[in-house]
Amino acid sequence: MSAERILITGAAGLIGSFLRPRLARPGRTLRLLDIADMGEAGAGEEHLRASVTDLAALERACEGVDAVVHLGGLASEAPWNDIADVNINGTYNIYEAARRTGVGRVVFASSNHAAGFHPSDEAPAPDYLFPAPDTYYGVSKVTGEALGSLYHSRYGLDVIAIRILTCNERPPDLRSLATWLSPGDAARLFEAGLSAPSPGFRVVWGVSANTRGWFSLDEARAIGYEPQDDAEPYAAELTERFGTLDPESPDARWLGGRFCGPDFGV
């Protein structure tokens, strides 16, 4: 697939800021959408200020677009009504706007929190691991995946749901030695999602090729992802700083980490 114009929702967020320069290509236009300021538009960029809760605005944003990268939404746990409005209804709006305007593909930013209550000691976590959400936020990602399946089966939309792990410039803690997704690998994975020929509906883990990784990369590699980074070079520094990971802690026991802890919530 040749994606010449890509709509990126949530483009002002952390992952959007990582992808924005890395998905830029000669002859490609990035149409960036957010409710937050995105700074000055660069070469090959179009900026739109709108919310994913506004279906009419999303229809306008999807006009002339080849593919959508849907990052927009609340990025962590929040009260149910907020999650339902922004993450669930907002994701429905993206799929529906894509359908109405003839966009052929959506790459959806799902999360490990869609399956957070699976134990980490059953690694490697398989592709398409059955949902076990750890929060309302996790429920919203399960719903986004289910909507993607529906819109593929009923309307023929290609949908790749990426269950993103710890996406940071560098691994921030001991847990991330297993869960890190480098910005470079994030871009490589989203680019694979945009360019894989006729992928249908897929669910893949969004993680680098970490030596201590807990996740299958088979399905991600099947769509053309070739990770180049590994958290292991940071292991000695993180161990010196934090000691060892308590095997009884939520960070060690569950794929969702602290989101599975008894005190986490709203």
Rank of each mutant, 00 (worst) to 15 (best):
A3R: 00
T9W: 00
A11I: 03
R20M: 02
R25D: 10
G27P: 07
R28K: 12
R31N: 13
A36T: 10
A36H: 13
L55M: 08
A56Q: 06
A57M: 02
R60V: 04
A61K: 01
D66A: 15
L71M: 10
G73H: 04
G73F: 00
S76L: 14
P79W: 01
A84F: 11
D85V: 13
D85F: 08
I88P: 02
N89T: 12
Y95V: 02
R99P: 01
T101A: 00
T101L: 08
S110K: 03
S110T: 04
G116A: 06
G116R: 00
P119I: 06
P124N: 11
P126S: 07
P131G: 09
A132L: 13
D134G: 04
K141V: 13
E145V: 09
Y151A: 04
Y155F: 15
Y155M: 05
L157T: 06
L157F: 09
L157C: 03
T166K: 09
N168S: 13
P172K: 07
S176T: 11
L194P: 06
G200F: 11
W205V: 06
G213Y: 03
W214G: 10
S216Y: 01
Y225E: 06
E226V: 12
E226H: 14
P227W: 08
A231F: 08
A231T: 05
E232R: 08
A236M: 11
T239H: 15
R241K: 15
P247R: 10
E248G: 14
R253D: 14
F259A: 15
C260M: 07
C260P: 13
F264M: 08
G265E: 08
